[in-house]
């Protein structure tokens, strides 16, 4: 069986997998990082989004073997070591941008990458378009869009905290 060595949330793992093992299966089943979810089988819902070398990808459409040598960040690795939430996580909480929580990890990981790649700032419409790869059935996206707009202000240093952005 192929062997994969990859760094996940700063920790290096070497794991035996089948050729057909998906990255999401490696994360959930081998490493027991169950925060990354699977919501569809057509690469559309985005519940499985993680970062590979700083870029958001769908871990359900990536073979584990293709992540050999990569650095992967999952939702479990987003908050600071002391548990302080990332501004995007904090904004999702502040703006009630999650309900059942199932799409949330992928949504947050997508949103973090979207904001990071757009330092010029995104309009509401651009945020909506930037979420094309993520489905949420609970919120109607209204509060997700608001949360991302607030988080980008903090991530880009325009405001000091989500609470300040909320005012």
């Amino acid at each position: 069986m192929p062997q994969v060595t990859l760094t996940v949330n700063g920790k290096t793992h070497t794991v035996e997998v089948e050729g057909r093992t998906l990255l999401v299966e490696l994360l959930r089943e081998k490493l027991r990082l169950t925060g990354t979810h699977v919501g569809c089988d057509t690469s559309q819902c985005g519940a499985c989004v993680v970062h590979i070398d700083g870029n958001s990808v769908k871990s359900c459409t990536t073979l584990a073997v293709m992540a050999d040598g990569a650095s992967v960040t999952t939702i479990e690795g987003l908050a600071a070591a002391d548990g302080t939430l990332h501004p995007m996580q904090e904004a999702f909480r502040e703006y009630h941008a999650l309900q059942c929580g199932f799409c949330t990890p992928g949504m947050v990981m997508s949103a973090v990458d979207l904001v990071a790649k757009n330092p010029q700032g995104l309009s509401e419409q651009e945020i909506r378009e930037g979420l094309e790869g993520n489905l949420c059935r609970c919120t109607g996206y209204h509060n997700i869009v608001k949360a991302i707009a607030a988080a980008q202000d903090v991530m880009h240093g325009k405001r000091t905290s989500i609470a300040a952005a909320a005012e």
């Binding site: 985005g46 958001s56 990808v57 997508s110 930037g130 790869g133 993520n134």
Partner: peptide, 9 residues
């Protein structure tokens, strides 16, 4: 093309 995640891969 597709979405951000598709474009990244």
């Amino acid at each position: 093309i597709g979405d951000n995640q598709v474009r990244n891969r």
